[in-house]
């Protein structure tokens, strides 16, 4: 089974802070990581490959620096990685990004001399949180999709997907090739070993630009290919002037709050 894993390098949003004075994001010193959901996609992809044979190829769109993220994936079982990078791709929204990726996937199939049976993505990237690129890649490629996968299970060479739903999960089968987006797995992504880390460090990561993807329509890339426009961004300021009880005995404070709640007719 040949598997393509789409990953994104993101800032570790847990480490992002807002400057209390300027109310802007402080990105300095925030480490770049592989989008956590993508690491699960990568792990399940490698597990499927280990069972069924084939190849796991990682692709990522981003600046030169995103090669680091691809190397991280190579150190935990991916066989090859491609960086999709061009100034013409900058400023793409999800529609344009998914278009570029879907065209890149075809180009990579050509270069690797194979057809992907499965395209895996994380549910969403933790910086944008849109969860759109996966389904949109499926649409561009005309493939079936399953989102919110909790696990992908191999059964007689076919796959079944556990899809998260309100009270548990749905077991879903699909025709292949297909796109699956992954939430979390019942197991953790593996750790790189020293040998795999060293080997990944040495691996060449080809960069694909529009020149390597001849079929691409540049009108549909970047700002011109993006129907959504960001009008403004701001940091949320939420400050209530609530009642704060300090230095009181627990019992008295509790009684006071309960009284306030009933006085305000909240209950």
């Amino acid at each position: 089974m040949n598997i393509c894993v789409c990953i994104k390098q993101v800032p570790d949003t847990n480490e992002i802070k807002v400057d209390p004075v300027t109310h802007t994001l402080v990105r300095k010193g925030v480490p770049s990581i592989v989008n956590p959901f993508d690491t699960y996609a990568q792990e399940v992809g490698v597990r499927l490959k280990e069972k069924l044979g084939g190849k796991v190829v990682v692709i990522s769109m981003g600046p030169e620096q995103a090669k680091e993220a691809i190397k991280t994936c190579l150190s935990v079982g991916a066989d090859a990685g491609y960086l999709i990078s061009s100034r013409k791709f900058g400023g793409s929204d999800t529609l344009a990004t998914s278009y570029i990726l879907s065209e890149a996937i075809k180009a990579v199939e050509e270069k690797e001399g194979l057809k992907f049976d499965l395209i895996l993505c994380g549910k969403q990237a933790v910086d944008g949180d849109t969860a759109q690129v996966g389904p949109e890649i499926a649409e561009h490629l005309g493939l079936p999709q399953i989102t919110y996968a909790l696990d992908i299970i191999e059964k007689d060479g076919d796959i079944q997907v556990k899809r998260e739903c309100d009270e548990g999960y749905d077991m879903i089968s699909t025709q292949l090739p297909a796109v699956v987006t992954v939430v979390r797995l019942p197991y953790e992504p593996r750790y790189p070993t020293i040998k795999s880390k060293m080997a990944a460090k040495k691996k060449e990561i080809p960069v694909l630009t529009e020149e390597d993807i001849p079929a691409i329509n540049l009108e549909r890339c970047g700002l011109s290919g993006s129907p959504t426009k960001v009008k403004k961004t701001y940091t949320p300021v939420t400050e209530k002037n609530g009642v704060k009880l300090e230095g009181m005995e627990a019992e008295d404070a509790a009684k006071e709050v309960v009284k306030l709640i009933y006085d305000a007719k909240i209950l």
Partner: peptide, 11 residues
Amino acid sequence: IDVLVADTSAK
């Protein structure tokens, strides 16, 4: 037998 590397804060 091997060495596993935890080089991100999450790992």
